[in-house]
């Protein structure tokens, strides 16, 4: 089995591609479709597209955009942002996007269970945003604005039982910092979960991706590790060679 590396692309209210730092400061990256095409040409393993303003704007998923995206990207695609109904999930799947990322709406485990029963657990990805480390780690929804009062592990196990087929652990305090993942949290959670864990938040280079995979993440996801914004806003796509990653994993401890 090859390790999965997943570029994560964030969309804002104006459907521009942005990068965030700790869920706050934003840098404009470029046109999403152009960037997604570049990743498609690189034959990346998978792409996550997350609309980070949809929930606060109370916007529903932009199906026209998602259809355009899926019509030329022949890899696993996951979309999240503003999803509140099963009907929306079915429309997204019809467009050719097979994974639904539930962030804010995953707080409602009944909804996770409904989507999973109707579409299969393989299409349900729960995204858990976490601030802090170890026992002080706290879960948040609504783009890091609303804390939820539940233990991280219990929350994730409940999501798994409700039918989430994968869980994304996103570190709010490492987002966009390029300082590396919260490795301890990934290690602890991966050992408690039967379903694959996707690490997100903090990676800035290939060695970070490898660290997450080594401690039990099934996939290493990142915005910063795959995209650089150069001078004059030139967007550079950087996708680490999977063979090199595999060598890094196998070599050394």
């Amino acid at each position: 089995m090859r390790p999965r590396l997943i570029p994560v692309l964030l969309l804002d209210s104006s459907r521009r591609l942005v990068k965030t730092v700790r869920f706050g400061k934003r840098t404009y990256v470029g046109d999403p479709l152009n960037v997604i095409r570049l990743f498609n040409e690189k034959e990346v393993d998978e792409i996550f597209v997350l609309d980070i303003d949809a929930t606060s704007d109370r916007r529903t998923p932009d199906l026209g955009f998602l259809r355009e995206l899926a019509s030329e990207c022949f890899m696993p695609l996951a979309y999240g942002g503003g999803i509140t109904s099963l009907e929306q999930c079915e429309q997204i799947s019809r467009a050719g996007i097979e994974k639904i990322v539930l962030g804010t709406s995953s707080e409602n485990k009944g909804f996770v269970s409904d989507v999973s029963k109707n579409m299969g657990s393989q299409s349900v990805v729960a995204c858990v945003d976490v601030f802090g480390s170890g026992v002080s780690a706290r879960c948040f929804t609504r783009s890091g604005k609303s804390p939820i009062n539940i233990d991280l592990i219990r929350h994730c196990v409940e999501l798994q039982e409700a039918g989430a087929g994968e869980i994304v652990l996103q570190s709010i305090d490492r987002d966009g910092t390029r300082s590396g993942y919260n490795v301890e949290l990934i290690r602890m959670l991966a050992s408690q979960l039967a379903v694959p864990l996707v690490a997100l938040g903090g990676a800035g280079e290939a060695t970070h991706l490898v660290e997450a995979l080594k401690v039990g993440a099934s996939a290493a996801a990142s915005g910063s590790a795959f995209i650089f914004v150069g001078r004059l806003r030139a967007v550079l796509i950087n996708s680490p060679d999977p063979a090199a990653i595999e060598m890094l994993i196998r070599g050394g401890s």
Partner: peptide, 12 residues
């Protein structure tokens, strides 16, 4: 083994 079910990902 560290394999997980469902089997999700790319394989040769």
């Amino acid at each position: 083994s560290k394999l997980k079910v469902p089997h999700i990902g790319w394989a040769d």
